[in-house]
């Protein structure tokens, strides 16, 4: 079974939007080494997005390019989950989000490396090597902040309280996933186990019975996506086809 165009776009959009969000830290990180780390992760995510957009552009045909897909689609056409478009918040929010998302990507890409769609499998295999770094780095931050000072702990707890409502969407199946042979519900248990281990070290508990927000996969986004697209797409829309 081949993956559908919408599914590839969904994977690309997740990576692009989070890459863009993390890039907001560039030059503003808490210390130089961590500024470099989050910028590197940003670069990895944008690289991932490019691989997926290049594939999507080929599937779409008619001379479509990766840039058309990143810069010339409107908000409603983006298929990313709500989690990745939320503002970067403080360092606790950024690292916690990275941990929750990268842990999800790790499980997903492990699965996708054996997908029938060879191109999707190849991209996933390559990307997984980078995602492993992201998981390790972000889990260390979650532990450090949770098991750190009173201030750091209160930061991570408040990040957790505001972020949790966006985690459920990762495991809510959308038609383009089903049509591509992906069963996201299967990943949820493993994901919870995975994050529990680091949460235990950080001495924090995953919230329960939280209402889960969704809509991103269907193109119905929070108000934040429009702003990030405006900033990201401005140049290509004002000066079509412009290059460095």
């Amino acid at each position: 079974m081949k993956a559908t165009l919408d599914y590839i776009l969904h994977l690309a959009d997740n990576a692009l939007i989070l890459g863009q969000r993390n890039a907001e830290w560039c030059g503003h990180g808490p210390v130089l080494e961590q500024d470099i780390a989050i910028s590197n992760i940003s670069l990895d995510l944008i690289g991932q997005a490019r691989s997926f957009y290049q594939y999507a552009a080929e599937l779409k045909g008619n001379g479509t390019t990766e840039d058309d897909l990143a810069y010339l689609r409107d908000e409603r056409q983006f298929r990313n989950i709500l989690l990745v478009e939320q503002p970067k918040g403080d360092w606790a929010f950024t690292t916690l989000r990275q941990f929750l998302f990268s842990s999800y990507q790790q499980l997903l890409f492990q699965k996708l490396t054996t997908h029938d769609d060879e191109r999707l499998a190849a991209i996933s295999e390559k990307t997984l090597k980078e995602v492993n770094y992201h998981v390790r780095w972000s889990s260390e931050w979650v532990i450090r902040l949770g098991d750190g000072t009173e201030e750091s702990r209160s930061r991570i707890l408040s990040a957790l309280a505001s972020i949790w409502t966006y985690t459920g969407e990762m495991f809510m199946p959308e038609s383009f996933e089903t049509a591509s042979g992906i069963v996201v519900t299967d990943l949820e248990t493993a994901w919870k186990e995975k994050i529990k281990t680091s949460f235990a070290e950080a001495n924090i508990d995953a919230p329960e019975n939280t209402f889960m927000r969704s809509g991103g996969k269907k193109g119905i986004h929070s108000e934040h996506l429009g702003f990030i697209l405006a900033e990201m797409q401005y140049l290509q829309r004002s000066y079509p086809g412009c290059e460095w």
Partner: peptide, 11 residues
């Protein structure tokens, strides 16, 4: 840091 001056390097 596991992330150095470029993606391929650690500091």
């Amino acid at each position: 840091s596991e992330f150095g001056s470029t993606a391929c390097k650690a500091l």
